[in-house]
């Protein structure tokens, strides 16, 4: 047994709050923890691996002929649709996992440390971007295998980043549900209620023109529709239209509303 010398780390503040730099490095440490957990339990990646492959195959062959006349003609419509739907659905897991995590004993230790209160939350959301990256990559690769030939490589990359940013923004909604709900199961229930209308009542699978007027009105204002349209245009031509702005605006509003709510709910428990 060795007797250690005691020099408390200099960066631990004796009192007061953490600097922005310290907060960022704490969030990164928490994100590192999130990544280890993902690596240890690969089964929790089922939603970002199986779903992109399954949905792409299923919807392409199911609707291709009926909606666009052929599989090949449907791909430029459906791949951006599935990309957005899958990645956004992935963001739901943030809330469920946050809830599960907060119920564990280790969260009490985090709360007993002199770290920024926001660090565990920020770290969790940061680690989840890896999930979005996996879902995005797999959907695009599936599309390419099926014969999707986007017009612009840069456009596809930008689309991916845009979708990931929007999913990250939406994850604040689920983080809010995660810190507010009592159990992980109820978080899942609430999240589905939010997600289903948002992703299915959009132009992801069918052109909005075919819908009845009231539904078309909803689909047209749904930020997810704008995001899908933005991705279609970006990947086809590489040009960013006003749709990109609308998608970013929608994402920003979500963050501005739900980030403070989530943080406040989280602080109350943390």
């Amino acid at each position: 047994m060795t007797t250690a010398t005691f020099t408390p780390p200099a960066t631990v503040p004796a009192s007061g709050t953490n600097s922005l730099g310290a907060t960022a490095s704490q969030a990164l440490a928490m994100a590192w923890r999130g990544l280890i957990k993902i690596r240890r339990t690969p089964e929790q990646l089922v939603d970002v691996t199986v779903q992109p492959i399954l949905f792409t195959l299923m919807f392409t062959f199911l609707f291709g002929g009926a909606i666009a006349g052929s599989i090949a003609d449907y791909l430029p419509t459906i791949i951006p649709g599935i990309l957005v739907q899958t990645v956004i659905t992935t963001s739901m897991v943030t809330g469920v996992q946050l809830r599960e995590d907060m119920d564990k004993g280790v969260f009490d230790r985090f709360r007993s440390l002199p770290i920024a209160r926001i660090a565990p939350l920020a770290g969790a959301l940061l680690a989840d971007t890896v999930r979005y990256l996996i879902a995005t990559t797999l959907t695009v690769v599936m599309g390419l295998i099926l014969g999707w030939r986007p017009g612009s490589v840069v456009g596809v990359v930008l689309s991916g980043l845009l979708v990931m940013f929007c999913a990250w923004s939406l994850s604040w909604i689920f983080a809010f549900a995660g810190v507010s709900a009592r159990t992980a199961a109820s978080v899942q229930g609430i999240s589905f209620l939010v997600l289903f209308p948002l992703t299915f009542l959009s132009n992801a699978f069918v052109p909005a023109d075919t819908l009845p007027g009231w539904l078309k009105a909803f689909v047209d204002v749904n930020p997810v529709s704008h995001l899908i349209t933005a991705v279609r245009e970006l990947s086809a031509t590489g040009t960013a239209t006003s749709e990109v702005l609308w998608a970013l605006l929608g994402a920003l509003v979500v963050v501005l509303v739900f980030a403070p709510l989530a943080v406040r709910g989280y602080m109350r428990k943390a």
Partner: peptide, 9 residues
């Protein structure tokens, strides 16, 4: 009994 460590790590 409560402030513990992360079991996944």
């Amino acid at each position: 009994q409560y402030a513990s460590v992360d079991e996944a790590l």
